[in-house]
Design a protein around this nucleic acid. Structure first.
Lengths: 144, 144
DNA sequence: CTATTATAGTTCGAGTCTGGGACTATGTGA
DNA sequence: TCACATAGTCCCAGACTCGAACTATAATAG
């Protein structure tokens, strides 16, 4: 029997496997030029567009990193930069239809994973698991 | 209220925060030249040393990546490569005393996090959370 | 209204991470 | 003995990352 792993590491193991599966599902759907780092940034974009600095904060990377990632995402046609009508310094990063087309594939795979986990644990324990994780956000999510 | 996040993403949020804290605690203890990628590899080293290919598999990176990471870890004095007596092709990667000195700092911070989470959720729910996560390993941990 | 200060974003530069492909050396099995 | 598999390395190119310095615009103070 292995030594007891930290709870956070148990979370890491499960979440990484899930993340890999979603990423693979998106690739399998034909999106071969999105990387994990880019996807992490994409996740933070609001429907009406989001400022780069906000994106950087959400993905927990430096502004320069976000600039580089958006550059690549723009070159490959997943996002566009539009002027922010409220602030002449700022620009809003918005998803293109191509990026929006990714979402259903990602959501479907997430849905499948969720169902597999529920099947494995049973509905009651899955509900308890989710509840505990949601409560933990209060002390672990810088954006909660 | 925000839309419902996938369970795996909730895990990611908590585990990333925990990971950042452990990393910061190690830095604060004076280890300024270890990176996250290197730490991930270090975690996989057994007390008697571990082959590079096993390390690569555990960290889920390519062999060449593991080679590069071990190169850096060796240059900064955290690991050493020794001949594997059982296989002339292989070499065992072993922690040096310097690497071993990191462990208590990491474990202490993990312990603190664990306690904070337990305080926040209550002992019973924390136990349920851990139990569910351990069971999920059966279907999410390639090394379970 | 101007001067100062703060903020949004970009560019530059250097180091790290990553894996595809090809290679050497050693072990394994027919 | 010979074919094949495995452990590890090297080369290479691209992606990621951020400190530092910069431009342009906004907000604030006097």
């Amino acid at each position: 029997m292995a030594r007891e792993l930290p709870t956070s590491l148990l979370m890491f193991i499960a979440s990484r496997t899930a993340s890999n599966r979603v990423f693979e599902a998106v690739r399998a759907a034909g999106f071969h030029d999105v990387t994990v780092a880019q996807a992490r940034l994409l996740m933070g974009i609001d429907p009406d567009g989001t400022r780069l600095s906000v994106l950087a904060a959400r993905a927990q990377v430096a502004k320069q990193t976000a600039t580089a990632l958006v550059d690549r995402l723009e070159r490959t046609g997943y996002v566009e930069r539009v002027a922010d009508p409220l602030d002449g310094r700022a620009r809003l990063v918005r998803m293109t239809p191509r990026a929006l087309a990714i979402l259903p594939h990602a959501r479907d795979e997430e849905e499948r994973i969720e169902q597999e986990w529920r099947d494995h644990l049973g509905a009651d324990r899955m509900t308890l698991l989710r509840g505990a994780l949601e409560d933990l956000r209060e002390i672990t999510d810088p954006y909660a």
